Computed example of a mutant assay.
Amino acid sequence: AKAYRMRLILQEIYRYPAAIAPMVLQDWIQWGLRCRLAPMVEVAKMLQNHYDGVVRWFSSKLTNGLLEGVNSLFQAAKRKARGYRSEKNIIAMVYVLAGKLNFALK
């Protein structure tokens, strides 16, 4: 029950205004570090290690989701291009997958 309550409070912090969210997040991290639940201590340590990036999100609202998506496309292209002999073929596969081209004949 305590872990669930901590999770809900952490989720609620992301709805706070950028002016007070870092202070509240720091309080949550301290709470998590004092907590005796090992998974919550891990989360608190992770947030502490990445504190600057997490706090920056409150002002920019940017994530690396787009980059992760492009990386996913690139990994899929590498799997599909297996056996090709050049890097140009992998790059071509990335363009085909990421370009969302319409090859339908009308």
Rank of each mutant, 00 (worst) to 15 (best):
A1R: 04
A1I: 05
A3V: 11
Y4K: 11
R5C: 08
M6V: 00
M6I: 04
R7Y: 15
R7G: 14
L8D: 15
I9A: 14
L10T: 03
L10F: 10
L10P: 03
Q11N: 13
E12A: 13
E12L: 09
E12P: 00
I13C: 04
Y14R: 05
Y14S: 12
R15K: 14
Y16K: 12
P17S: 10
A19R: 14
A19T: 14
A19V: 11
I20D: 11
A21S: 11
P22T: 06
P22R: 05
M23F: 12
M23Q: 11
V24F: 03
L25I: 01
L25Q: 01
Q26C: 08
Q26Y: 07
D27E: 14
D27T: 10
W28N: 05
I29K: 04
I29T: 04
I29C: 03
I29P: 03
I29V: 14
W31N: 09
W31E: 14
W31P: 00
G32W: 01
R34H: 12
R34D: 14
R36C: 02
L37D: 12
M40R: 00
M40Y: 02
V41F: 00
V41E: 07
V41Q: 15
E42M: 06
E42C: 09
V43G: 00
A44K: 00
A44F: 01
K45E: 13
M46G: 11
L47D: 00
L47C: 15
Q48N: 12
N49E: 07
H50Y: 11
Y51H: 13
D52C: 01
V54Q: 04
V55D: 00
V55H: 01
V55S: 01
R56K: 13
R56S: 10
F58C: 09
F58K: 10
F58S: 07
S59W: 08
S59P: 00
S59L: 07
S59E: 13
K61R: 15
L62K: 15
L62E: 10
L62S: 08
T63C: 04
G69K: 08
G69D: 07
V70N: 07
V70S: 08
S72H: 10
L73I: 15
L73F: 06
F74V: 15
Q75A: 05
A76I: 11
A77P: 05
A77R: 09
R79I: 14
R79W: 03
K80I: 06
A81D: 03
R82M: 09
G83H: 09
G83K: 06
G83C: 05
Y84I: 04
Y84M: 13
S86N: 13
S86H: 11
S86C: 10
S86M: 06
E87T: 10
A92Q: 12
M93A: 08
Y95D: 06
Y95W: 10
Y95I: 07
L97K: 05
A98S: 14
A98G: 09
G99C: 04
G99I: 07
L101M: 12
N102I: 07
N102A: 04
F103K: 05
A104K: 12
L105G: 04
L105E: 13
L105A: 12
L105T: 13
K106H: 08
